[in-house]
Design a protein around this nucleic acid. Structure first.
Length: 610
DNA sequence: CTAGGGTTAG
């Protein structure tokens, strides 16, 4: 029997990713007495590399040597690639060096460069690329595809740009796949603008192109841009896939755009992608963050295999909405089911504890994290624990904790302490925390406002003035925070004092009515109650107020509208929240991380979760 | 009988 039918079949199987079948066929071929040749080995090697079978890969290497075709370019490249897939870079390099012909073959360089890149060996990648150029070996787009992704990190932007220039010189910059890689590289370096420019330049955009840009926006927190691009993608007639949806859903979670999220979910269901764990995690996250815990839980419960990410999303959801006990129960259940928690899982459970006032439980987790799970707490964990202690009034312990930190504290850690000082009216420690926090975030206006409020509560007029002067000296303008309200699938965005909305006339008339109402209520005795009202309906035309009024004007009786106030400070509750306000017509329920505020028929009540 | 490559969640 000749080798042609064997090789043809082998190639077909490898092409269809039926690697196990391909290897079986290869063995059968040997048993039948047919000798493999330079057109058999590549497919056998590829199959072995695609299965976790390094041993069979090495066996194949021996057979290659015996058969005397190790100088065949096709075989050499496959050998290098096989070793790279098993991360045996030493062996890959040996194959490259021991066969001098590799030095002149673009494909061999390509295989080895991508191997180094996959193992993050940045310097080896660059060194080999330079050698390639010195040897006069031509660089093609596959070289760039293997090479560019290694610079996808915040520190590599400049060297990444050098390679972009190199691509331009070689005329590869607009090569479809290379451009995809470059866009991805830029967005992962947080150089979104560069990525977008290249994206816009690309004459042809494919699914991967759109996904790269959408995921890039999503990872850099530019949720509004994600939704915009998603719409453009639909207009362009490109059919989204699971990767697209993951990016879009995470942005829905950030924006609170439930109805877009819902629409995406329906599209997922109709495209039968529902079994993808990535998508399920993104859906849980979206529903949990948007306040629909029932739905989030249903998806979570329906997942056959739950990863630590799934658990973290649902635990964070319960914690965020004040159900600390459930969050804690779930966390324990997760451990019992044998899932190892990671740093992010601890952030979610620690946050849940601090929001629910489960101080002791939270401290217990924090110590378990270090002792039992051998995880080094980062600043994000410390800020949770400082918040935990701070809310419980244990300010000195919180301060001691910060002082004892192994890692360098960041702004959030001191900010948590400052927030705690606001609740417990500790002016002295607030001054200390403020001094530290503005070292990290000197332009974060919120902290100045917080300190000013602490002074004003303590009736320290001098302090209030001091903060004002400081703000003026540093040319800090009032936070141009904006709020969103999602209505009939569209996100309406408002800036403070915004007059650009088509319904501005009606909105401002109602604002006036509400302000008149507040003035009438200003005489009421309960200080806290008045503060609450003033916080939301008080003086000035806050973005949030415009969004709320828009919601009140447009909602049908009994429907709910969700207002997202973006990083606004709740005057009553001391900290900055990306809060969610729910409006039921003529009744306003504002919820932040710790409390519900009800406004009804001119009355207000403020109720803690716990 | 034509190798080498890219996008994915908290």
């Amino acid at each position: 029997m000749t080798w042609i039918p064997w090789n043809t079949q082998l190639r077909e199987l490898a092409k269809q990713c039926q690697y196990l079948e391909a290897l079986t066929l290869y063995r059968q071929m040997l048993r039948c007495g047919s000798y493999p040749n330079a057109f058999s080995f590549p497919f056998a090697l590829k199959s072995s590399a695609s299965l976790p079978l390094p041993f069979s890969g090495q066996q194949l290497h021996c057979q290659v040597i015996k058969s005397g075709c190790s100088q065949e370019p096709f075989v050499l490249t496959s050998l290098i690639s096989m070793y790279c897939k098993f991360s045996s870079l030493g062996n890959a390099r040996k194959v490259f060096d021991e066969n001098p012909i590799s030095n002149q073959l673009t494909v061999c360089y390509n295989a080895l460069i991508s191997g180094y890149a996959l193992n993050s060996r940045v310097f080896d990648v660059i060194a080999l690329f330079c050698r390639m150029r010195e040897m006069g070996v031509s660089v093609n787009s596959v070289t760039m595809l293997g090479l560019v992704p290694v610079f996808s990190g915040p520190g590599y932007i400049s060297v990444g740009m050098c390679f972009h220039c190199c691509c331009v010189k070689l005329g590869l910059n607009l090569d479809f796949s290379v451009a995809n890689c470059l866009v991805t590289m830029y967005v992962k370096c947080a150089a979104i603008e560069f990525g977008r420019n290249l994206f816009d330049e690309m004459p042809k955009k494919g699914l991967i192109t759109w996904n790269a840009m959408i995921s890039g926006y999503a990872q850099n927190g530019l949720a509004a841009d994600v939704l915009e691009l998603y719409r453009k993608m639909e207009t362009a007639g490109v059919c989204p896939d699971a990767v697209t949806f993951v990016g879009v859903l995470s942005s829905c979670a950030n924006l609170g755009a439930v109805s877009v999220g819902h629409e995406v979910e329906q599209r997922i269901e109709s495209s039968r992608l529902g079994l993808n764990p990535f998508l399920n995690n993104a859906l849980i996250n979206m529903y949990a963050r948007c306040g629909n815990l029932v739905k989030a839980r249903a998806i979570f419960d329906g997942m056959p295999v739950k990863s630590v990410v799934s658990w973290t999303a649902i635990i964070g959801g319960y914690g965020m909405h004040g159900y600390g006990e459930i969050a804690v129960e779930l966390f324990d259940e997760m451990i019992k089911s044998g899932i190892q928690p990671d740093g992010a899982a601890f952030v979610s459970v620690l946050c849940a504890c601090s929001h629910a006032g489960l101080t002791e439980k939270g401290l217990e987790y924090f110590s378990e994290m270090k002792m039992k799970h051998r995880l080094q707490p980062g600043p994000e964990h410390y800020s949770c624990v400082v918040d935990l202690l701070g809310r419980a009034g244990r300010l000195n312990e919180a301060l001691e904790l910060i002082k004892s930190m192994q890692v360098k504290p960041d702004g959030a850690v001191w900010g948590a302490l400052l927030g705690a000082c606001k609740i417990h009216r500790n002016v002295e420690m607030a001054e200390l925390a403020f001094e530290r926090v503005i070292e990290f975030e000197p332009t974060n206006i919120g902290y100045y406002v917080l300190l000013s409020n602490i002074y004003s509560e303590a009736e320290n007029l001098e302090g209030v003035l001091k903060v004002r002067v400081m703000m003026r000296e540093r040319k800090l303008k009032k936070d141009p925070g904006f709020s969103y309200v999602e209505y009939k699938g569209k996100v309406h965005l408002f800036l403070a004092g915004d007059r650009s909305h088509p319904q501005k006339k009606e909105i401002y008339r109602m604002v006036d009515e509400l302000e008149a109402l507040v003035k009438k209520l200003a005489g009421c005795k309960d200080n806290e109650e008045r503060r609450n009202k003033e916080a939301l309906l008080g003086m000035g035309v806050h973005s949030e107020k415009l969004a709320i009024v828009f919601g009140l004007l447009n909602s049908e009786p009994g429907t709910e509208i969700v207002v997202i106030k973006n990083l606004r400070m709740c005057e009553d509750c001391h900290l900055f929240f990306k809060g969610v306000s729910k409006i039921v017509t003529r009744q306003l329920v504002v919820r932040d991380a710790t409390r519900f505020h009800h406004f009804r028929d001119g009355h207000c009540s403020c109720k803690d979760y716990w």
